[in-house]
Simulated scan of single mutants.
Amino acid sequence: MRVRVLMLSVAMIGSACSAQGTQKLPRNAPEATVKNVPATTGRANLRETPPPFTMTRIGTFAEPFALAMLPGGAALMTEKAGQLKLRWADGNVVTVSGVPRVAKVDQGGLLDVAIAPGFAANRGIYLSYSEPGKNGAALALAHATLKITQVQCVRAPCPAQASLEGFRVLWRSGMNGVGGQFGANIAFAPDGKSLFLSSGERQRFTPAQDPEQRLGKILRLTLDGKAWPGNPQYKAGGVRSETWSTGHRNPYGLAFTADGRLWEEEMGPMGGDELNLILPGKNYGWPVVSNGDNYSGKPIPDHPSRPDLEAPKLWWNPSISPGGMIAYSGAMFPGYRGNLFIGALGGQALIRIVVTGDKAMAVAQWPMVARVRDVAQAADGAIWLIEDEGALLRLTPKR
Rank of each mutant, 00 (worst) to 15 (best):
M1P: 10
V3N: 09
M7N: 13
L8H: 11
A11E: 06
A16C: 12
A19Q: 14
T22M: 12
Q23K: 12
L25H: 02
P26Q: 11
P30Y: 11
E31P: 03
A32K: 05
V34H: 09
T41N: 12
R43W: 05
N45H: 07
T49R: 13
P51A: 13
T54W: 06
M55F: 08
I58T: 14
G59T: 08
F65W: 15
A66P: 01
M69D: 01
K80G: 11
A81S: 15
G82T: 00
Q83R: 15
K85F: 02
R87I: 01
A89K: 13
D90M: 08
V93Q: 09
T95C: 01
V99Y: 02
R101K: 15
V102S: 07
A103E: 13
D106K: 08
Q107L: 08
G118D: 09
G118K: 07
G124S: 04
G124W: 01
I125H: 07
Y129A: 02
P132A: 03
P132Q: 03
A137N: 09
L139I: 10
L141Y: 08
L141T: 01
C153I: 11
R155Q: 12
R155A: 14
A156P: 02
C158N: 12
S163W: 02
G166K: 09
F167V: 06
M175T: 15
Q181T: 12
I186D: 10
F188K: 04
A189H: 00
F196S: 06
S198K: 05
R204K: 14
R204T: 06
A208C: 05
D210V: 08
P211I: 00
L221Y: 07
D224S: 11
G225M: 10
K226N: 13
W228N: 14
W228M: 13
P232S: 00
T243M: 03
W244H: 06
T246H: 13
H248R: 09
G253V: 13
W263A: 03
G268V: 05
P269C: 06
G272R: 01
E274A: 05
N276C: 09
L277E: 01
P287T: 05
V289A: 00
S290E: 13
S290P: 11
N291L: 09
D293Y: 10
N294T: 07
Y295S: 00
S296A: 11
K298A: 14
I300S: 01
D302T: 13
H303E: 14
L309H: 08
L314K: 07
I320D: 05
I326T: 00
A327S: 15
A331S: 14
Y336W: 15
G338P: 02
L340D: 01
I342C: 12
G343A: 10
Q348V: 09
G357I: 02
D358E: 14
K359Y: 11
A362K: 06
Q365R: 15
M368L: 15
D374H: 06
D374R: 06
V375A: 12
A376S: 14
E389K: 14
L393I: 12
P397K: 03
